[in-house]
Amino acid sequence: MGITLAKGQRVDLTKSNPGLKNIIIGLGWDTNKYDGGNDFDLDTTAFLLGENGKTTSDGDFIFYNNLKHSSGCIEHLGDNRTGEGDGDDEQMLVNLSLVPSNITKLAFTTTIHEAMERRQNFGQVSNSYIRVFNKETNEELIRYELGEDFSIETAVVIAEIYKHNGEWKFNASGAGFEGGLVALCNNFGINI
């Protein structure tokens, strides 16, 4: 069992795991009692960011319509449209050795698809988490459970993996946004 983090905590990822290169980011969630008549579709996204905290191109935005970064460093492994079942609902494969040198941070986010139209928000989501595990050994290294701190938010920056002094670190962000995917994209320099 890996390290369990609380919001705002940071932990080393590669220094304590020498040679770590291929990881899987797994995200999971359940919905609270919701009777709006619509499925609850959460979408996992990743933004590859430079020193200024912005993407360098539209290709640095990985989501269900752009599943793989041109460098091969991140690949989205599929869109789960209901969150049904146990375990990870969506996963992303990350090869840390392929992250381009101008990218210093990987931000992993979740948004609610058509949140405004369906009148859904993260206050209706429970048991949400992000975990990092070693693809080679299947060992869970880090887990961060978001809790239920959100009420009106429709997008969350769940965690960041960032480079510091040549090593990769993990930050349990848990920063909520109103405005869904558009708000996140604007924040990270993608114009929709």
Rank of each mutant, 00 (worst) to 15 (best):
A183M: 07
M92Q: 15
I3D: 13
I192Q: 10
H113L: 06
L5M: 12
Q120Y: 03
N102Q: 11
T31W: 02
L27P: 03
T31V: 07
V157H: 11
F133W: 11
D41K: 04
L77S: 12
F133A: 01
G28L: 05
T111F: 07
Q9Y: 00
D39R: 00
L77E: 15
G166D: 02
N127E: 02
V11A: 04
N138W: 13
V182L: 10
A6Y: 06
A46Y: 10
D30A: 04
L5D: 09
P18R: 00
Y34P: 14
E136A: 08
L42D: 01
D43C: 09
D79K: 02
L93V: 10
A172F: 05
D43R: 07
D12S: 13
N22W: 10
D86Y: 14
E84Q: 12
E145F: 07
N102L: 05
T4V: 11
G87V: 14
K54S: 05
A172K: 00
G19D: 11
K33E: 15
G83L: 03
D30I: 03
F170Y: 11
D43F: 13
C185A: 11
L27Y: 14
N134A: 09
I25Q: 00
G2D: 15
E160T: 08
I130S: 15
A159S: 13
Y64H: 07
A172N: 11
G85P: 08
N138L: 14
L77D: 14
T55H: 05
A172C: 06
K7A: 03
E51V: 12
L49A: 02
D60V: 03
I130L: 13
K54T: 11
G59V: 06
G28C: 06
I112G: 04
N186K: 12
Y144I: 02
E114I: 05
K33V: 10
K169E: 02
I130T: 15
Y64R: 00
Q124V: 08
D88L: 07
D30L: 06
G26S: 15
N171W: 11
V156N: 02
D79I: 05
E145P: 03
S97N: 07
G179E: 12
K68D: 04
T154V: 07
F177E: 12
F63Y: 09
G53R: 01
T45N: 10
R118A: 12
T45W: 01
A107C: 08
N22P: 07
N165C: 12
I74N: 05
S97L: 01
N134I: 09
E136W: 05
F63C: 01
F47V: 10
A159E: 06
H113D: 06
A115R: 00
E178K: 06
N66Y: 10
K169F: 00
Y144S: 01
L49K: 01
N32C: 07
N186I: 08
S70P: 04
T56A: 04
E160K: 02
I74Y: 06
I158Y: 08
H164E: 04
N138V: 14
I158A: 03
L13Q: 09
V132T: 09
A115Y: 01
N191D: 14
S57M: 06
F108E: 01
N127G: 00
G123R: 02
